[in-house]
Amino acid sequence: MAARGVQQLKQVTSQHEGFLRHAGFRWLKIALTVSLLAIVIYAFDDVRPRPNGGSAYGYFLGTVGLLLILWLTMLGVRKRAMTRGRWSLKSWTSAHVYLGLALIVIGTLHTGFQFGWNVHTLAYVLMMLVILSGIYGITAYAALPRALSNNRGETTQTQMLDNLRMIDRQLHDAAQPLDHRHAEMVRMSLDDDPFGGGAWARLTGRYPRCGTRRAQAAVRAETGPNPAIGDDPLEKIDVLLERKEANLARMRQHLRLKALLEVWLYVHVPLTFALIAALFAHVFAVFFYWG
């Protein structure tokens, strides 16, 4: 029984590896081998007057790099095309990450360390930016899911929004007996768009003009000097605002983490297309004007 358990354990854990550890770091090993090989050949390849992209090895590296970039781009299609067959997006992601990193070596060696203010270096810079944004993506994917899970507990995003709506309804009901001035305070919270404030607020989770906080401050200023004897409708409002504030904090943290997990794609993907455009310009330029 114990022996069988160990056998099963191996199957379970292999299923349970994340994309970075996939298949015992298979793609990391492949990428390292490819990079090392590329460096060694580069070191022994005696190109005169100096190493450049136009040598035989340079052309080879360029071709490999170009094909690799096009293939890496295909992850976006693979992810969305739910075709049949024995493929796993996890192994694609794993290969995408490690081969993408290997591109640093392949691309840099292809330049032969010749840089200038031209379309060729533009393509190189774009490639490095895409890779940098990708590295941010890897760190975000490694660090943030745990925080996202901790923050939401077992509540779904829809439930969080429902909770907020419920508190708003209760606030609305509780505000009925109030006079106009106090009702205006509650309106500050009810009329506020709690998630407005643009991309910066979304990414930092800071909402300096939060209506609920202002409403609570106003209510507190009002009730502060009075003793809490439990018959003031404003006290109930205060409790509700407190609850809304806690719910808002959780929801904003949720949105912030989700935004942090996604924001890099808004750099990564458009730059990839810019990179491909620049690459074609680079290849066109090389073959039609240089050669």
């Binding site: 114990a2 099963q8 379970v12 349970h16 992601t93 899911p145």
Partner: peptide, 20 residues
């Protein structure tokens, strides 16, 4: 198959609930 990070797994309980 479509999970990019390997978070989604399918298991049967005998295989998962083993003290090993």
């Amino acid at each position: 198959r479509a999970c990019p990070t390997g978070a989604a797994i399918r298991v049967s309980p005998e295989r998962f609930l083993t003290v090993s």
